[in-house]
Amino acid sequence: MIEFKGLIKKFGNRTVLNGLDLIIREGEIVFILGTSGTGKSVLLKNIVGLMRPDEGEIWIDGEEVSRFSEDQYFSIRKKCGMVFQQPALFDSLTVFENIAFGLRRHFRLSEREVTDRVQLALKLVNIQGVEQKRPTQMSYGMQKRVSLARTIALQPKILLFDEPTTGLDPITTTVINHLIQDLSKQLKSTSIVVSHDMNCALSIADRIVVLDKGQIEAIGTPDELKKSQHPLVRDFLAEVLSL
């Protein structure tokens, strides 16, 4: 379970998160929507400790983590898998080594087991035969998937996605969206997805959170939001509902 209490994050004199309260239950898929610049990515980065809040608390599995030292945070990060907006693969390593990176460091595995887990991760994201390629030799969509494989190879309890389908064509988008759904089920993990893909949010989210100006404007299941009269929510869903 992840809980935010009165989260405030400022950059200079600009408030990005403004007293955010939110509870995310174990095993649910939560989509976070909002116009650009309303603090969606910042929220994710606060969970994994890449940024720290100025005020407020973050509880992950019963621990208040926002004041953790960098060393204490490593144990939290092992629970969280973050998929970045950019693929963020290590250029100097092969695809295999990229995916094996976390495995080799956090688990005592034989070489054979590492290979198995890498292969499994690649199979889950639906690609094969690229283990020895370098990230720069692959298309953007492929890189995104390898990046996803690197994250899920560690079988994290919490999956965080920062715009996983941005810049991908419709078919690959569908593939990734299905992956998010399947992975959440198979790994029994909690997923938080920052996305602009309304279709996907409505079809796979358990709950949707709409952020505006660093606060929650609306929250609810897809069905609840479809019926919502909130103007911002109407704006967001206008195109999807009219089709």
């Binding site: 929507l33 909002g34 650009s36 715009e163 941005t166 810049g167 602009h196 309304m198 967001f236 195109e239």
Partner: peptide
């Protein structure tokens, strides 16, 4: 080249 990638639907529109 993909002018609206990464934008929310309201801004993209």
């Amino acid at each position: 080249d993909d002018p609206t990638a990464g934008l929310d639907p309201i801004t993209a529109k």
